[in-house]
Design a protein around this nucleic acid. Structure first.
Lengths: 185, 185
DNA sequence: GTCTATAAGAAGATAGAC
DNA sequence: GTCTATCTTCTTATAGAC
């Protein structure tokens, strides 16, 4: 068990980046192997199939989002937590415009695929949807479910529109208005 | 010039349906040929490349949206026009949940592709974004641009979330709240 | 564990008969 | 205009030496 090799990690990092910019199906194992400087044949020592790589990326992205949500949860008031989440897109404005949301793009792509992967589509969105719902519930909103849907829909759509138009200011504008909405609730 | 053959039309209809449910890259020419009952080799009489088919589908979808917008524009007041657009998702609730938005899914996929197709991404979204902006301007809103972004982002995100969760009620809930928002403006 | 070579199959595209 | 057969390339995956 060579603890020294970071090949698996490098493969995942490359895969994550390439899938973000090109999509999963468009990204070939050769792309990932070359980018991570691992010989193509060696990839199969770390991952049984290409689908396996995708499953790992789904997990990685869900964990990243959970880490962000944990940070946001440090605030005392649920409204402040939601506002903290809302601020995040501003810090990755340009990446969001270039590539779209790491959760949303993959979710939309995987819902179109066959087999196990199509189930990952829901998980990617539900992790943040559930958290938002909990915050609205903590605010004693009887319509917490709908408020969460409204918030997450807006954020996902914002990423799609910013990506489509190539205009980062979309992020600022939509976040700003959504903040006002949250504060008025 | 055989006016009798509807092969080109059949190819486009099949391509449109398959791309909607599987995505463009996932859809093969063999898929399209089989579905439209046209021999594979014959496809190339109607379209020079696979990319060409995609360009036609982009045009088709833009034209469909323009037709819908034209219908919505029949109303006298701009607010009523916007409300008419907002009602449309309700009539295609289940399709939207199964496949996502015909504009948004293709836009998100094409922005990840290379070459000419990546430019189509913007067109698919801007057709409806521009129209919405015009309506808000007709309502004398100084922030028409931002209102349009907010509306279209919400609708696009709604389709993505409904598709990811597989829950058609997402459409009803988000449309309902967005209607209230529009009416309060 | 690592890597080269290559098998096996899919997919876009073309040739050329009809 | 139509269609069959096939070429070529790309891609996933495996075999097997080191």
């Amino acid at each position: 068990m060579p603890r020294t090799s970071d090949k698996r990690e490098r493969l995942l990092r490359s895969a994550d980046r390439l899938i973000l910019s090109q999509g999963f199906r468009q990204t070939t194992l050769a792309d990932i192997a070359e980018d991570s400087d691992v010989p193509l044949g060696n990839v199969y020592y770390y991952f049984k199939t290409k689908e396996d790589i995708c499953k790992s990326i789904v997990e990685t992205r869900i964990e990243s989002m959970q880490a962000l949500l944990k940070k946001c949860s440090e605030a005392d008031a649920p409204r402040t937590r939601l506002l903290a989440l809302l601020d995040y897109p501003l810090t990755v404005r340009n990446e969001l415009t270039d590539t779209g949301c790491p959760l949303g793009t993959l979710s939309y792509e995987l819902s179109r695929s066959e087999g196990v992967l199509s189930q990952s589509s829901a998980q990617l969105i539900e992790v943040v949807l559930d958290w938002a719902r909990q915050q609205f519930q903590a605010m004693d909103k009887p319509d917490a479910d709908e408020l969460a849907l409204q918030l997450i829909s807006t954020l996902q759509g914002m990423s799609l529109v910013a990506n489509a138009t190539g205009d980062p200011s979309v992020v600022d504008k939509v976040v700003s208005r959504t903040r006002s909405w949250l504060e008025s609730l």
